[in-house]
Amino acid sequence: METRIENHPILGDTKKGKPVTFTYNDMEVQGYEGEPIAAALKAAGIMVHRYTKKEHKPRGIFCAIGRCTDCVMVVDGKPNIRTCVTPLKQGMKVQTQYGVSADTFDKQQRGV
């Protein structure tokens, strides 16, 4: 995870929670307990959190403080979870959000 800052000239070693595993669209990803889901995704190089309902445009982290709602995803089956302010837990199920669903737009259109 080279996007993690291991040793910072001012802050030193950043304190992290215990390592946990969660799933991102069925893929296993490592993160640290208690950090925002968005931080773990960013560290794993995952940029797209959701696609907008009407135009299907990608969105990711924007404000990182829970204000803009750009980074919402489906977490443990619940849509519209602000991943930048939701602490990561072991075994969490994180999915890309299409509109307000974890189903892709194709699947939504087929009405399955």
Partner: peptide
Amino acid sequence: GAAQTMMNIHGVKP
């Protein structure tokens, strides 16, 4: 602000 939050609080490069 997002950059600061990510790098200085969560230890992740923006």
